[in-house]
Amino acid sequence: MSLAYAEVIGDPIAQSKSPVIHGFWLEKLGITGDYRRVHMKADGLADYFASRRDDPDWRGCNVTMPHKQAVIPLIDRLDPLAARIGAVNTVVREGGALVGYNTDAPGFLEPLRPLLGQTHYFRMARVLGTGGAARAIVAALAAEGMVIVLAGRDVGKARALLEELDPKGDHHVAPLDHFADATDFPFDDREGCLDLVVNASSLGMTGQGALCFDMSHAPPGSVFYDIVTSPLETDFLKAAKGAGFRTFDGLSMLIGQADHAFRKFFGAMPPRGAADVALRERMLG
């Protein structure tokens, strides 16, 4: 008996919570299907897509680190948003073609929508990281009128990324270690402003290096957002909470992007709202 399925591919992959999310929704909707994780090295990507093209039960895959750009030459076409971002996190077979999408951008913005729906005098985001996820986050925030300070180990790479994604924007770059040391910068009155501090890197993830960020770099009223999901409450978020800042964890983005991917894989709207509470409990159980 054939079984429709989708997958997530990456290196490493054991930490991925995507199978739990999609499995939960399949169960709640009573859909006969499966969602799997596949540990995929870079040198196996071409063979992977070649084999999946011939599998009628394969609906597509999510793509996680470090393959979000490497998969682009191996698929047939890109959705306009994915083309603009230059990174793919969802591949779907449509007819005989493999189409690349980026659901990271709308997924990242989902928990911020109530804030972004308000009027602000000024919007600034300090974004830490310059990888594939950062590309989606920068593009999404620029489209929402945010002035971006992009921090990376390689300032030249950060500058090139901003020039590529939003060449007309009034954005800035900084070395990542700039935020590690305390500052005595006198922030102005931030009432009516929206300030975000986003960890868009893998720093702070289990098995990765630490993310060093001194809270003196955050203006009053800042909102902190960490896309890392393992651990869920990173040291970055713990420090932000301890300093009294509002925070969003990595599951917010992960569930949001999975929502868009699930619709494409299985042709159904996933249960959200109150179901998110039960989903989080399952992921943390």
Rank of each mutant, 00 (worst) to 15 (best):
A239E: 01
H171R: 14
D235K: 06
A243H: 04
D181F: 01
A240I: 00
P231N: 02
D184R: 03
D177C: 10
D189Q: 09
V173K: 06
M253L: 07
F236C: 03
A174G: 10
A210Y: 07
R159T: 14
G207W: 13
K241P: 00
A174N: 10
S202I: 12
F213W: 03
E163P: 00
S230N: 15
A261W: 01
E233S: 01
T234E: 06
P167N: 05
E163R: 07
T247Y: 02
H172K: 13
L165A: 05
Q257G: 04
G256H: 14
P220R: 09
A158P: 10
K168Q: 14
P167T: 07
C193R: 04
M215I: 10
I227D: 02
G209K: 12
D189M: 08
M205L: 14
N199W: 02
P220H: 02
L254N: 09
L176S: 13
A243V: 02
M215Q: 08
G221Q: 07
L211F: 06
A239R: 11
G204F: 05
T247C: 15
T247G: 10
R159M: 14
C212E: 11
D235P: 00
G207E: 11
G209L: 13
R190K: 03
G250K: 05
L165S: 05
E163Q: 12
A180F: 05
R246L: 15
M215G: 08
H178E: 05
T183W: 04
M205H: 05
C193W: 13
A261I: 09
H260R: 15
I255S: 03
F187T: 04
G242C: 01
H178R: 06
A180R: 14
G242I: 00
G192V: 10
G156R: 12
A180P: 10
Q257C: 08
H178M: 06
M215D: 01
A160W: 12
G221P: 12
F179T: 04
F236Y: 07
I255Y: 02
S252Y: 08
T234P: 03
P186R: 11
V223T: 13
A160M: 09
S216I: 11
L203R: 05
K241M: 12
F248N: 09
S216P: 12
L237T: 01
T206G: 09
G192W: 09
F213I: 07
G204V: 06
E233K: 07
E164G: 12
R246H: 15
P231W: 03
H172F: 15
C193V: 03
T234I: 09
D181M: 03
D259E: 14
T206L: 15
A258C: 08
